[in-house]
């Protein structure tokens, strides 16, 4: 969760006898597990995506054929894939900034000098983050009910007509975004509070002496100094949001009209429901590329700001 610090190099002459071997023994369980059950499957995934591995191949792996980039070609011609990619981008690009903005707002309020009961509020705001996603997705499904749901009932008092949250293709994704924002803002809020507390108060005092009001202090002191925190929060939130799966699986099964089918849900369906594993591996790899590009863009933006 943290950016790796730059490790210090130690000349080999300083090595106490035996620590090298001891170190590798300490590392062996973790590294072999991570290699066998994570890195190796990731590499295998790339190979798998170049084959036509399907339900017959599960029974008899020798039936698998190498098909080159055909899975990728088919993927790019499939409207379902493009829709899943659009849905995922919608979720990440609308939900991500919304979550981060709310997290920052909550962190600023909790960090204000006048605020009392800080730890109580902090705990309450963090509670949604520790809850079980599947369980709260089910709860929200009922809260979103067109007729019996509390949300529409509450909105009714404000004169809003009942919204078919999960049954209307236009509203289903916003509904899932709302749930995700509620569930996740508490985590980023904690990170922002930690970032805010690390800003020396002399900087604010100096800005105040220079006549900067609260708004200018926020834009000229707080925001620039939060840069590294912002990058961390942005990258972690985005990587998480690109992996959208449980919410649509539980709440909408990807519908209505596939409006909430995410890339991971599509991969799950292709790979583990229809057992088209070669094709599904290609979907997984495209997801990885998208995440990689989005991460690089964020690093680039951060460097330009700095």
């Amino acid at each position: 969760m943290t950016a790796p610090a730059i490790p210090t190099r130690t000349p080999a002459a300083q090595l106490p006898p035996g620590t090298g071997r001891a170190a590798w023994l300490f590392l062996a369980p973790a590294l072999s597990l991570i290699f066998i059950f994570f890195f190796l499957p990731v590499l295998a995934s790339l190979l798998l995506s170049l084959t036509d591995f399907d339900i017959y191949a599960i029974a008899d792996p020798s039936a698998t054929r190498f098909v080159g980039l055909r899975n990728y070609g088919r993927l790019l011609q499939t409207p379902e894939f493009w829709q899943a990619l659009r849905n995922t981008l919608y979720f990440a690009l609308a939900g991500g900034p919304l979550t981060i903005a709310l997290s920052l707002g909550a962190a600023l309020l909790l960090n204000a000098k006048l605020t009392r009961f800080k730890t109580v509020f902090r705990t309450i705001y963090f509670i949604p983050f520790v809850t079980t996603l599947v369980a709260v997705s089910i709860v929200w499904r009922y809260l979103y009910h067109t007729r019996y749901g509390l949300l529409n009932y509450g909105l009714g008092y404000l004169g809003v007509e009942p919204i078919d949250w999960l049954g209307d293709p236009r509203w289903a994704m916003p509904a899932i975004i709302l749930l995700a924002v509620w569930k996740n803002f508490g985590y980023n809020m904690l990170i922002f509070i930690a970032g805010l507390q690390s800003i020396p108060s002399e900087l604010y005092d100096a800005a105040e002496i220079d006549g900067a009001g609260p708004v200018r202090r926020f834009f000229n002191v707080t925001l620039p100094l939060l840069g590294p925190t912002m990058l961390f929060v942005g990258v972690v939130t985005m990587i998480g949001y690109f992996q959208l799966f449980a919410e649509p699986y539980v709440m909408t099964m990807g519908g209505p009209l596939r409006a909430t089918t995410s890339v991971v849900l599509l991969m799950y369906e292709e790979g583990f429901r229809w057992w088209r594993m070669g094709y599904a591996a290609a979907i997984a790899f495209v997801l990885f590329l998208v995440i990689l590009i989005a991460t690089l863009i964020q690093f680039r933006l951060q460097r330009e700001r700095a």
């Binding site: 059950f37 499957p41 990731v42 295998a44 995934s45 990587i239 992996q243 991971v264 990885f288 990689l292």
Partner: peptide, 22 residues
């Protein structure tokens, strides 16, 4: 350590299909 840190940007779902077969 650097090699390991690369794994932080790899989504776990990329590993899931071969992991299941394994």
């Amino acid at each position: 350590f650097r090699l390991l840190s690369l794994g932080l940007v790899l989504p776990v779902q990329v590993a899931m299909l071969p992991l299941f077969l394994l």
